[in-house]
């Protein structure tokens, strides 16, 4: 995407998640696309850390919905991103969310389309994350991780990727740990301790933690679903939401908190701790120790913001997608004047 000189585009966001496992990840992705639609950010990469091809396909379903390629089969559509998938050879289990997004049918045909039929239709996550960073203005992107840290660790290990992270990313926001119920292991960290430690020690930007204590502070209001989504009968969030729990229920918003902190820090939905250092124990317990000059902080609940948070989450998750006007095809490069043809 190109802009005129001096113009800085909205912040780019790279979202690394274990899509399909929890409803708050689907909510987070929809809120992220909602923020993109409102020009608060641009979604630049989606990488999935759940070793299941169908998890990547389900994430693409959501992306295609916001690119309108679900709806306008023959009309204009937005850009559909390549989904990065961490393939660990052995498939992790399907979940009701994945099944709802991929297996729901209408008149004998899948309700939602995607183009992921084999592993080759997905990408290695680390190059995707590195490449997405290279496309940004300096300090104009954020990385959000709401699953295990495997993909971020692989990115750091990629040849010459760390300088790109340092140059292009403003911060990393992670939904991991628990900074109220100390001593409680975090499954996301426990899933790959080595990667978590590599990221915590070597990631070259500030890292902001959204701890598990934020998950149910401002749950997603199920009562609003019918009203907010009245404009459509086809929405992947509704499908996933209905499949993930017994309706009606208010969904946790752990991953959503991380997205909002990354894209709208000025809204101050959450307070931030003083700087410090987070370490991870062998069983996945994250411990925060205040330290001057530390590059880690964790988010703190602000009860005064609960209503605003819920209202904004509901509004962003239900944004009606529109396709931005596409750039016209590039003009022909200027041709040099042609000298007279030699004839002899």
């Amino acid at each position: 995407m190109q802009f005129g000189p001096g113009f800085k585009p909205p912040m780019g966001v790279i979202f690394d998640c274990d899509f399909g496992n929890r409803i708050d990840t689907v909510l987070a992705l929809c809120v992220l696309y909602g923020l993109d639609q409102k020009n608060d950010c641009r979604v630049y990469a989606i990488t999935v850390n759940k070793s299941n091809l169908r998890a990547a396909a389900a994430a693409e379903v959501v992306g295609r919905f916001y690119a309108l390629s679900q709806q306008n089969l023959n009309g204009p559509t937005g850009r559909v991103l390549a989904i990065g998938l961490n393939d660990r050879s052995k498939d992790e289990a399907d979940t009701p969310i994945i099944k709802a997004l991929l297996d729901t049918q209408v008149e004998g045909k899948p309700k939602y389309i995607h183009a992921i039929a084999s592993l080759n239709d997905t990408a290695e996550p680390a190059p995707v994350i590195r490449n997405a960073l290279t496309a940004h203005h300096d300090q104009n992107s954020a990385v959000v991780c709401t699953g295990p840290f495997t993909n971020l660790s692989a990115t750091l290990n990629l040849y010459q990727a760390k300088p790109w992270v340092e140059k292009k990313a403003r911060y990393l926001v992670v939904a991991a740990g628990d900074f109220v119920n100390s001593g409680k292991p975090c499954p996301k960290l426990a899933a790959d301790i080595a990667s978590a430690r590599n990221v915590l020690e070597n990631w070259p930007t500030d890292i902001i933690f959204a701890g598990a204590e934020l998950a149910n502070v401002a749950p997603f209001p199920a009562a609003n679903l019918e009203k907010d989504f009245a404009w459509t009968k086809t929405h992947p969030l509704i499908e996933a939401y209905s499949a993930a729990g017994k309706m009606p229920y208010d969904a946790p918003t752990w991953d959503v908190a991380a997205i909002l902190q990354a894209v709208r820090p000025k809204e101050q939905y959450f307070k931030l701790s003083e700087p410090g250092v987070v370490t991870v124990s062998d069983n996945g317990v994250a411990t925060f120790t205040a330290k001057a000059g530390g590059r880690h902080r964790h988010m703190i609940v602000d009860p005064a913001k609960k209503e605003a948070l819920q209202a904004d989450m509901a509004a962003l998750a239900s944004v009606k997608p529109v396709v931005r006007t596409r750039r016209p095809p590039p003009p022909a490069a200027a041709e040099p004047p042609k000298p007279e043809q030699k004839k002899s």
């Binding site: 990065g84 080759n120 290695e124």
Partner: peptide, 8 residues
């Protein structure tokens, strides 16, 4: 031979 998308 088809590789994964974005393979350098």
């Amino acid at each position: 031979r088809v590789y994964r998308r974005e393979t350098p």
